[in-house]
Design a protein around this nucleic acid. Structure first.
Lengths: 238, 238
DNA sequence: CGCTACTTTGATATTTTTCAATCTTGGTGG
DNA sequence: CCACCAAGATTGAAAAATATCAAAGTAGCG
């Protein structure tokens, strides 16, 4: 069977009722994808490219086809909090009151589809099936966010990092992962901003997990899981 | 004009594009409400009633019409993490892989509508407008969850409590609030579970805010805001 | 009016943050 | 091709904050 291009416009999520393995699956039919592509602009951006800034008027909704994007907010104190990391099949740029809530920036070279928000909403209002797919996707994101909230409740850095790793891996199709390696395109500082920890705490946490034989790094942007069972237990609770 | 009954089935959220004040508004038309009511079961439950348990098969989706519900998860360590508090106009019970993710329990006497999930999804798939309203609501919840994630990143207890108070107030129609009092139907322990703090830390945080003249309690389940400006600043960042 | 559950308060211990310095890595230019 | 530079990452020591354990105080409810 032909492998789909990795930069195609697709949306992935775990449906409400799927009896599968719980892994996110592509939601759109090929007809729906074509419909979206026909009204979308395909962007090829380099690392560091800012797609939109917080509090600016929201004119587009974005779909990440390939690469990685961070959605973050600059706090008055100057610290950065990362709201989400986005990968292939993820939607971002959902506005509130007509403005973006966060800033979105590519962290590696990425392929992004930009959809005018008014065109998309018109499409959604007249195509219940497409609308339902979007509902599935947003619901999926909401559940992920709640999972993360639960995880953020814990105080221990290693536990938070463990759950972060599993969360990143869950967002990637298992078929595309190399063995048990988890890609970490973002910086330690981004991870810290995502987990609500200092970057030193993140470093110490990963360091101790490596020393314990749970993880091994292949450079700074890829981790191999050596002891899956222990990592799962650590992420589950403490 | 006739005031709508407080136990009517309604869904409230901030739309994508509204140029309003940012406060959530009822989304459904009266025809849509009637349609939902016709397939819903109205439940009148007492405090402590469990609506569903985590990991059980999800057959219904719920809408809170009046009262207050907590959605939580029991962790292996025995601690409870609160995923959400739900009030009038809120949806809950969105399943993943056909099962509930959390446990839902009423914290005060409440009026809840129960909708069979298969009937609702069928309705959504054939009615794009209704579907779009649900998309708005879930998107609203996602943004709230992200806001909370940002807030959970901070380490100081008073800041977390401040943002919790504002978050609770935001969920209530401003018209129904008595002056600047915020209702807190949940226990301190629930708040702690929501914020990822020990209940002692919550108690100390509220205590210090009272001593500073920022808040005043009318009993344990209602706070008045005495210094709005300072509370906002505390909640915004530190 | 008294019980029970919840809440507040107190003292110690654990953890992370912070501030600072050192070390790596990836990229650049000689 | 190698050395250097700069940004990011790691490691170290001290300080701040919350967690934890324990006890006393309140409030609501029968």
């Amino acid at each position: 069977m032909p492998r789909r291009a990795i930069d195609a416009l697709s949306i992935r999520a775990t449906p409400f009722d799927l009896m599968g393995n719980g892994e996110p699956v592509p939601l759109l039919t090929s007809a729906q994808r074509q419909q979206l592509v026909s009204v979308a602009t395909k962007l090829t951006v380099r690392a560091g490219h800012v797609l939109y800034r917080e509090d600016t008027v929201a004119t587009s909704i974005f779909v990440c086809a390939d690469g990685a994007v961070k959605s973050f907010r600059e706090l008055p104190s100057g610290t950065r909090r990362v709201a989400m990391f986005l990968f292939g099949g993820d939607i971002f740029g959902l506005a509130e009151n007509g403005r973006y809530v966060n800033t979105a920036q590519a962290i590696v070279p990425s392929t992004i589809y930009r959809l005018p928000v008014d065109v998309l909403t018109a499409l959604l209002r007249q195509d219940p099936e497409l609308d339902f797919q979007f509902l599935c996707k947003v619901t999926h994101e909401l559940r992920e966010a709640q999972r993360r909230i639960i995880a953020m409740g814990r105080r221990d850095a290693t536990g938070r990092v463990a759950m972060f790793l599993l969360m990143i891996r869950r967002r990637h199709p298992s078929g595309r992962l190399q063995g048990n390696a988890i890609p970490l395109p973002m910086s330690r500082s981004d991870i810290a901003g995502y987990l609500g920890l200092s970057l030193e705490a993140v470093s110490r946490a990963t360091g101790s997990m490596v020393k314990d034989g749970m993880l091994a790094f292949d450079g700074r942007h890829s981790v191999r899981v050596l002891d899956q069972e222990r990592l799962d237990k650590l992420a589950a609770d403490l």
